[in-house]
Design a binder for these strands. Structure first.
Lengths: 341, 341
DNA sequence: ACGAATAACGAAAACGGTTTAGTGATTTCA
DNA sequence: TGAAATCACTAAACCGTTTTCGTTATTCGT
């Protein structure tokens, strides 16, 4: 079944059918209705490849997930973001072509496989994976894209959570409970957003006249994170509150506390950057700076679709504030002191 | 840059270039090398839409994720499965078009959006979403597909974990520690695999001469699961071991225990069907019947690729055994008895 | 050394749409 | 009321590949 069959049955030309399908003006009302009814009743769908070839657009966007951790899709951020983006795109008639990268080298091949052959009209990409090569390729191919997160190389077309603000919120929340010796457990310092989170927390401390927080960087690996936190727990003077600057590190933090028999929040208060469904159900619940992922995803799709349609989006960069979700993992530092006294 | 440009530069016809690109015989060795070098040096990639149109294949597979829970991609199974499938497909030069469904009704539209317009050559689909309509549509379109899980409607072209065996393993593991009063916390009984898991556990009990386990069905919602488990914990005679028949229900189980101040494994032993990275890091670690997701994913892709290539796969149905991962959430029932005595 | 088989290629016809240019009929306006 | 403008539509070119078919050299067997 092709457009030609429809045309014959409706006694019109292919061009007219095409115009009807695409809602292009230049077709009489009665003709349009007749063709539409025919298409409907035959459940006809135009061939996507043919459309892509003729119109030079595929109505498909690419999604390239970075490779932080073994299965990035078990992280606190990406699975939800991917879900939101996919649904948001589907609602607008856009399909999502997915690409994951296992290793650092894979990023390149994932990139190419998705860019190759004008398979997509645009892409959403994690800012952290913007190497020179990838960037060059995108620009050369003139492919619209929006980044999730900010890259040091490109300063536009991105959507990001306000990392600095979120970090401040976390640090201030801890400080407001009376904590004075804070720590930041941050991700690898190669990631662009990590330094924002670290400095945000540091600034908050300085403004309150507190000493700079001790900063530890850990890969997104529970065991390594646990080792880092152990170091923190054994250091003197004791840290009483930790800002865990990525949800993926929370489990390691809890594990370290369990192993050293420190209890949360009595011995250590925790605020996480990133929320996750299971944080609510742990005992205690984890207080978190939650990214409004739905909002971020919708914004990213909006921006990309504008670019794909050839117009400049209203806002070419968006930084969205997170919000603090208070649960049980934060208490005053006095609790531990009183207990040990 | 098109195939025509390449042809002119190499002083051959478009047909020859096409043959070279597709590795079709009928081209001299030196010509082939020359064209190949040109393609390489110009970094030429043939237009995917044009290929799709002419060759009637898109080298793309669809992936339809079911809608169990708010964000299925935070479940214990699907994110990992999706990752594996995507990477396995990428390694074979196949792209993945993703589709998610938020609601029951959405399944249909997700289905159609991905099937529409011969955008894909085949699909991997969760068996649980096979309604009559979807099935009819697939068969009508003659679209190759493989199911993840077994459907009651179609008995071939699926890959599944051995649900029954896994359940037996779980129940027997509990029984081997001396538990006699077991419970099964299962997912919604509309899902096809749920009854297999329930009956597997029941059979294991019967064979050992134990009473049938008490079975509770819960949606994949932490709070509802917790309520179910509370009921279990308060029932008499007391249940001492529970087989949590889906990873997504573990958190609810733990939450109920925490709320009623029962400790694991002293008061309640837990075995989960499905493993998850964070199970290892909880205290205690959760003993789980782990699905070999990588193996399952690879098998599914293999099978689908065979179908897409037009040949019948060697194995038209695969049931893969899970394996038991012992951690700290199981102990003998005596512990609680002794404590309370 | 000669006809037959084979190999290497070119020309051109699909594939199923979109889009441009053109045509006849109708409406608009002075 | 006649020329101009508008409208609804058709015909045909085009998008960038694959694939079929035919042609020309080349190799083969005898």
């Amino acid at each position: 079944m092709t457009i030609k069959d429809i045309a014959e049955m409706a006694h019109v030309s292919k061009g007219t059918v095409s115009r009807v399908i695409n809602g292009v003006p230049g077709v009489g009302d009665d003709t349009r209705r007749r063709v539409l009814k025919l298409i409907e009743s035959l459940d006809f769908h135009p061939n996507a490849s043919a459309r892509g070839l003729a119109a030079r657009k595929t109505n498909t966007m690419g999604f390239v997930i970075p490779h932080t951790g073994k299965y990035t899709l078990t992280s606190t951020f990406w699975p939800v973001f991917l879900t939101v983006v996919t649904q948001e795109a589907a609602a607008r008639g856009i399909n999502v072509l997915l690409s994951t990268a296992r290793s650092e080298d894979d990023v390149d091949s994932a990139f190419r496989s998705i860019l190759r052959g004008r398979r997509i009209d645009g892409a959403i990409i994690g800012a952290e994976q913007f190497g020179e090569k990838q960037l060059a390729e995108l620009l050369v191919k003139n492919l619209p894209f929006v980044m999730m997160g900010r890259s040091s190389r490109i300063s536009t077309h991105y959507v990001d959570v306000d990392n600095s603000l979120g970090a401040r919120m976390a640090a201030e929340h801890l400080a407001a409970q009376g904590h004075e010796r804070l720590a930041v457990l941050a991700g690898p310092d190669t990631l662009p957003y990590v330094s924002d989170r670290v400095s945000g927390a540091r600034d908050a401390c300085r403004e309150r006249g507190l000493p700079d927080p001790v900063v530890v960087h850990s890969p997104y690996e529970t065991l390594e994170a646990a080792r880092c936190v152990e170091g923190l727990l054994l250091s003197r003077p004791a840290v009483t509150g930790v800002f865990v600057a990525a949800g993926d590190l929370v489990l390691g933090t809890l594990r370290a506390c369990a192993e050293l028999r420190r209890s949360v929040p009595q011995d250590l208060s925790i605020v996480s950057f990133d929320d996750h469904p299971f944080f609510e159900h742990l005992a205690p619940g984890i207080t978190a700076v939650a990214q409004p992922i739905e909002e971020i995803g919708a914004a990213a799709v909006d921006m990309l679709l504008a670019l794909m349609a050839g117009r400049e989006p209203e806002r070419t960069a968006m930084v969205i504030p997170p919000r603090l979700v208070e649960r049980g993992s934060v208490a005053g530092p006095g609790v531990a002191a009183r207990t040990s006294a």
